[in-house]
């Protein structure tokens, strides 16, 4: 029974929602709007679920004294501080905004900025023209990189002005994005979309049941 009820609900709502897309009748559209508003109510529960999982994970880490378990206390300090300030006083509270601007923003920006150093180091150590495919990737990457910055056009127009390309590095980059990149992306999108459709049909028909979790 625990598995049959969700399977029936999934089948009924799946089929009904598909039909609402093909019927402009007022009953069909009212039903569609109603289900959308139900979904809006359900979505905040995902936040509750995520927070609960995060807390459970870090409680377990502390209990089991796994590697670097001490850092899990910092997670709780962060959560408790922001909840204690944010829930009663709202996100426009000065202290809440101060923590956001002076703690979260610099930390997030720092994490992202570190990528520049790692990319430079990785490019130097690993980006090698070992095979024909690797060489093609390397040349394409270099053209796109140079086309992404104004100095690329300057160099292209000075050193490579003899090439029959009018718009310099930025033009070459645009051509790569508009042609080989676009074709490959479209193929990926079509493949993923077909996969999503087939998976959705499997879920609606109850063939795919992993979302129900294990056990009976």
């Amino acid at each position: 029974m625990r598995r049959q009820v969700p399977l029936i609900l999934c089948f009924v709502f799946g089929i009904v929602m598909i039909f609402t897309q093909f019927s402009p009748h007022s009953v069909s559209q009212t039903l569609y709007q109603e289900v959308i508003s139900w979904a809006l109510i359900i979505s905040p529960f995902a936040l509750v679920l995520a927070t609960t999982t995060l807390i459970q994970t870090h409680v377990t880490r502390i209990r089991r004294r796994t590697e670097h378990w001490q850092y899990s206390f910092l997670v709780f300090v962060g959560i408790i501080t922001m909840v204690v300030i944010g829930v009663p006083f709202g996100p426009q509270n000065q202290v809440f905004e101060w923590f956001y601007t002076h703690v979260q923003v610099p930390m997030d920006a720092t994490m992202f900025s570190l990528l520049a150093f790692f990319i430079a180091s990785a490019a130097y150590r690993a980006f090698r023209a070992r095979t024909f495919e690797a060489s093609l990737l390397l040349i394409t990457a270099l053209i796109v990189m140079m086309g992404n910055v104004p100095v690329g056009d300057l160099i292209w127009n000075t050193v490579l002005s003899w090439l029959p390309l009018e718009d310099g590095a930025s033009g070459a980059r645009q051509w790569i994005l508009n042609n080989p990149n676009l074709s490959a992306r479209r193929g990926i999108i079509l493949g993923v979309s077909l996969g999503v459709i087939s998976q959705s049909i499997r879920i609606i028909l109850g063939i795919e049941r992993t979302y129900l979790g294990g056990g009976d």
Partner: peptide, 23 residues
């Protein structure tokens, strides 16, 4: 920032070329 990024991109291109010459 795009002007600053120009120099970083130049550096990375230089590093990739240097890495391949050594290789």
């Amino acid at each position: 920032w795009i002007n600053i990024e120009s120099f970083v991109h130049l550096l990375i291109v230089g590093l990739v070329v240097a890495g391949n010459i050594i290789f």
